[in-house]
Computed example of a mutant assay.
Amino acid sequence: MTLRFSEVCIDAHDIHALSAWWSTVLGWPAEPTEDGDVALRAPAGAGPDWLFLAVPDGKTVKNRIHFDFTPDDQQAEVDRVLGLGARHVDIGQGEQSWVVLADPEGNEFCILSAK
């Protein structure tokens, strides 16, 4: 048996707004699916596609899984995504080399130090 990691499913109150935001952040194209969801198609070698699924409720607690991104320039990327509508969040991380942010629906993600 062989499994291939093909999609990350993300619940969203507004799949169109949130997928458009992440499409801008990542530079990945967004497209509607036959089921009425929205998919972000990852470029080859960039990981799995992201599938945004509509849910009626908003996010209420800290994510149990989140994304870490490694930039070329950490501060430039933090500034860029903050300018697009991300916000700083404190999940108890303390002083670290990474920056914890949240997308417009409150989903946490980290921008790591540049490698």
Rank of each mutant, 00 (worst) to 15 (best):
W22S: 10
S97T: 14
E31Q: 10
V55G: 06
I15G: 02
A39N: 09
V99I: 07
R64T: 15
Q93K: 02
I111L: 07
V8W: 04
D79V: 00
A17C: 04
W22R: 07
P104S: 09
V89P: 10
A20Y: 04
P48Q: 12
A54G: 07
I91T: 14
E95Q: 13
D68L: 02
P29Y: 03
Q75F: 01
P43Q: 00
H16S: 12
K59F: 08
V78W: 00
S23Y: 08
P71V: 04
D14Y: 05
Q96Y: 08
A17P: 10
A114T: 06
A12Q: 03
G106R: 05
R41K: 13
A12E: 11
W98F: 13
D57S: 13
K62L: 13
Q96G: 05
D35K: 05
A44Q: 11
G83N: 11
C110G: 01
D72F: 00
V55K: 06
A12D: 06
F5S: 10
V25W: 14
G106M: 05
P56I: 15
A30Y: 03
A17T: 04
L18N: 10
D103W: 04
L18W: 01
S23E: 13
V38H: 04
V78F: 00
T24S: 11
S19W: 02
G58N: 11
L40W: 06
D14R: 12
C9Y: 02
L40Q: 07
E7F: 07
G47W: 11
G58A: 15
E95M: 10
S6H: 08
G92W: 02
A46R: 07
N63L: 15
V78T: 05
F109L: 09
K62G: 09
E31H: 02
G58D: 14
H66L: 08
I91F: 04
N107C: 03
G106C: 04
P32R: 04
E105L: 09
I15F: 09
H66N: 09
K115D: 14
A86K: 04
L26A: 05
L18H: 03
F69T: 11
V8G: 07
F52P: 06
V81I: 14
I111R: 00
H16E: 15
F67T: 02
A54S: 13
G36E: 04
L101K: 08
G92C: 08
A76I: 12
V38C: 03
L18K: 03
T24C: 08
D11T: 12
W22I: 12
S97A: 13
V38A: 03
W21F: 14
D11F: 02
T70R: 13
